[in-house]
Design a protein around this nucleic acid. Sequence first.
DNA 1: ATGAAAGCGCTAACAA
DNA 2: TTGTTAGCGCTTTCAT
Lengths: 332, 332
Amino acid sequence: MNMRVKISDVAKVAGVSSSTVSHVLSGNRPISPEVCLRVRQVIESLGYRPNYAAKSLASHRTMKVGVVSDEISNSISGVLVEAMNRYLRENGYSMLLGVCEFKKENAINYLREFSSGMVDGVINMIGSVSVQEAARECKTVPTITYLRAHQECPVYYDRTSGIILALEHLWSLGHRKIGFIAVSDTNPETAVEEREIGYRQFFVRMGMQPDENLIVTGNNKIESGYIYAEKLMKAGATAIMASNDMMAVGVLQWAHQNQVRVPDELSVAGFDDAPIALAVAPTLTTVQMPIDILAEKTVNALISKIKGETPRQQEVLVPRLIIRNSTGKVKS
Amino acid sequence: MNMRVKISDVAKVAGVSSSTVSHVLSGNRPISPEVCLRVRQVIESLGYRPNYAAKSLASHRTMKVGVVSDEISNSISGVLVEAMNRYLRENGYSMLLGVCEFKKENAINYLREFSSGMVDGVINMIGSVSVQEAARECKTVPTITYLRAHQECPVYYDRTSGIILALEHLWSLGHRKIGFIAVSDTNPETAVEEREIGYRQFFVRMGMQPDENLIVTGNNKIESGYIYAEKLMKAGATAIMASNDMMAVGVLQWAHQNQVRVPDELSVAGFDDAPIALAVAPTLTTVQMPIDILAEKTVNALISKIKGETPRQQEVLVPRLIIRNSTGKVKS
DNA sequence: ATGAAAGCGCTAACAA
DNA sequence: TTGTTAGCGCTTTCAT
């Protein structure tokens, strides 16, 4: 092992005690200016850096937060993780990221690993891990599960009304036969998938029976949109609402490949407002996830929890519709 | 602080010494089957989990690798980070990720933080941080800088010949006026941007002077493609080669908005083969980064370095052209 | 095959 | 304002 310079070395050279050096670094006890300066110079000249493990062992704090996510590239979760990272750093924390690749086993491992003194708090973003499971695995380490209907989650984002917002927009453009690409993943906190509920609710509210031929279930990926677009068109859809942007992009791709003009012959709407919504042509009308707010509130909630403050009541965020170029009046 | 169960508690209940428990866990000393079983049962029933900080303080190992990257969402780096994460875990390491948001200051901070006993090794993916700088900040901690021409980097990927590959393809389709969107970011290890070199080299090889009106410099983002597409078309380009996929997507977007049909009226090629290359319509012809191989070789090199093995010689990977639907014969 | 005990490098309570 | 010292919870050498 490399003989690194330690706090006692600094103390010796500076002619003070280790605890003085420690306090110069932490700043939580008054130090005379001269001593402070001298210690800092010695630290500089010796190239001293505090040992992280020793520090956290002694102080019972790591200033680290563990985040478990299924993926980070090519999806809205990456944007979210980046935003959380930003807020964590603003509060002096570093992020330890566990990427699980949709394997629950990985997620559980990360939660266990993280909570054995590795971090001060955990953010669980894994859809298949419930609030209770996360809390159980993390034992005494403060844990926040991201975006669930469950009371203990600091923020919740109402996907049901998000879908309704988009459907109202399509309806106002004259669309009546609106295809819907649902998703099967239901999180453990809600019995049924919220976006599909929104779809069904909307049509009932409009005095219509939702047409089962216009409802298909995808896998959140581009391919689902591509595959189901044709089926929905054949079923008479003049517009397609997808449960996320990736599947909406798949629909656009199918349309392009089959000379179906968007939005003239087919309107397409997505959900999330992922970066890709702006990259495709035509740009995608979509329901926006307020990523920054979600990240901030989640991080803040965790930090309060770490500090032992009593949690605030759950906040419910209202979705916003972003109208771009993939939706238009129904063809007459 | 929470009174967590520690190794001595397990030892007491199991009627053995702490060191025996430790060895049951690590497996690096023979233990009698009965003792082993008893200890494991006690561990289970007490819900014991080793304290991470104490472990690394005593063992001088963290089994963690720090990765510094500018971004993770919406770019090829996220895919790469995910791939590295996979290989690291296969080797028993966890990843500590530092997202720097293109601020060099953040990068330096992460490198310093990581190398103060927080990780066993560091992977530097920040373009503006040179091999030397990274090594300096990380002191005695083994460090690998990702994808540089520099000798000490385990893999290198020849972008110059990658561009030439794509240009040969366009040339064979009859294109002679090929616009090029370069990028200004040059990494500290190479004096000039390699992709631009490739472009210039190609035309010289074809016995032509590269036309300066057909060369513009973008910022790696979609908007650059969008902005420069028009300029390059006006300069007579029948095809546009972009230095990355995002800018190529910007060109597609401009084309779509201006009723320029791709590839009938304009061919477009990108670089990287980011996920978005498959999401757009038409799908993008591009030069593929061998992400998985790059990730594996980089991770393996770091792990060897951690183990103190002598580094192997740098490996140079050959790019591959992926022909999709955004390139076609020049219009006659 | 197992135990005893000396640290790892730091923080924080207590003393001065 | 500063120093002394007792741990933090584990690994690992040395003994047995």
